[in-house]
Design a protein around this nucleic acid. Structure first.
Lengths: 254, 254
DNA sequence: TTCGATTTGTGCGATATGTCAACAAATATC
DNA sequence: GATATTTGTTGACATATCGCACAAATCGAA
């Protein structure tokens, strides 16, 4: 019950998962040696992991390079499918987006990143396509800020210090202390507004999604073009609809 | 080089992955014993897998039940991000959807399912939200049929026989032989049209995406409302645009 | 081609891990 | 509330697997 004892762990599983995570957009095809250095595993071990993955259909092997197969996606979608939240909120997202003509999303916090778990896309504002499973850093997103606001302050601060905060645009706050001020503001107001800190031209307003016990389990946001006005104007215009959905979802979240 | 020899496999990895896959929408929270029966592993082994997953942050454990965490999504998105195809085709999808005012998607085949890897959603025709990572059975989808058509006939037939074909609508073909006839038709014509076999009110037309060597690596489709007419009308109206994009993408696919 | 450099494949001892069985704790059943 | 059943945990033993060192293969450049 205390810590995980040595005899309760399975090294092989941990190693295999880390091998999967070495595959990125920059390195979609890797040799055994590449995976070995990327994962820090011995070549012999990396080789066994890769051969096992190939054998199970999670990877393809052409005799030289390994690539992941769509079967790996099953792991992720198993996870998404296993979450009750996405299916519960999707109808509300659809309605909200339809009504306002803007994209809305629901995300949860994974360490210092927000992970989209449901989305109703309306028009394309962002340069990259967001979808369930997509990740953005918490510090520069409206959903990230309301989710950080739901944590104990020390924990939020720890997450903000995990890595240097990149200036994604000239408007991005890159000082953890400065972000923390915004996080506190979000906690007090019950919502967060972001003005082009993720991407120029893009604003966003988010509220936390609370379960019946009042615990923030996710965040709901609207993506808006930057020309929509200052924070107060945005809030006045869009907050009522968000709060309404927030209330409805709270009723159905155990 | 021949088969995977016993000494090149890692049992722990295989077991851990199968444990992850036991989590579904129906069973998002599982005890050790439940996972044990679902995976066929000994309880002690299942326990070690689960504790390891929890230790690594892939699962949560409340002392009784395990749930997967969003961290598992990283595995899947690592896979999607590692695919060059989605990023390459996305601009074409966006343009195509914009032009025609209908949703378009690209999918690949994973065993007997199609997996969406890119999508430009225009208006909501389907009851469920489709997005990259989503899966539909191959037998009743236009993209599935053109992808099956690209396989050797015996292999396609094997996939069609893997599980009973569910009648998703009154129009769904549920006889493997009958589906095979359509698959062959798709191969001859170079495209497939589906009329409300997935969902009532929804038609779809698909073409294969070929790489420079002429190998079908994915499928491209348009989702259309059922009122759009019969197969020939649909093809006459939408095929030219699809074929144009097919040609463009073929140029950029190695 | 030949040679060196890098990468990949493979035996081996030491260690980790799976299996099985037993047991204790929790839960269900009556 | 007593019994039966399921579930979680632990220990012992056989075996799989790790990581090392070396062999084989592949690659690159002269």
């Amino acid at each position: 019950m205390t810590g995980i004892s040595q005899r309760d762990t399975m090294g092989g599983l941990a190693k295999g998962l880390s091998v999967i995570e070495t595959f990125t957009a920059e390195r979609p095809r890797q040799s055994i040696a590449e995976v070995s250095v990327a994962s820090g595993l011995d070549r012999a071990t990396a080789r066994r992991c890769l051969l096992t993955l190939a054998h199970l259909g999670y990877a393809d092997y052409d005799g030289k390079f390994f690539t992941l197969t769509p079967r790996v996606l099953r792991l992720g979608t198993a996870c998404l499918a296993a979450m009750p939240l996405p299916q519960m909120v999707q109808p509300w997202l659809d309605r909200l987006s339809e009504e306002l003509g803007e994209s809305s999303s629901v995300s949860i916090l994974d360490v210092d990143e927000i992970v989209y778990v449901a989305r109703a896309a309306q028009r394309k504002l962002m340069s990259i396509a967001l979808m369930p499973g997509s990740r953005l850093p918490a510090y520069c997103t409206s959903m990230g800020r309301v989710l950080l606001a739901a944590l104990p302050e020390a924990e939020a601060m720890r997450l903000l210090r995990l890595r240097p905060l990149a200036a994604r645009t000239p408007l991005t706050l890159t000082d953890p202390e400065a972000v923390m001020v915004q996080v506190k503001g979000a906690r007090e107001r019950g919502y967060a507004v972001i003005d082009q800190e993720v991407e120029l031209g893009l604003c966003s307003i988010a509220v936390p999604l609370l379960n019946a016990r009042g615990v923030a389990v996710a965040a709901l946001n609207l993506g808006l073009p930057a020309l929509a006005g200052d924070a107060e104007t945005l809030a006045a215009r869009y907050l009522p609809a968000l709060v309404r959905v927030q209330g409805e979802i709270r009723k159905i979240l155990r």
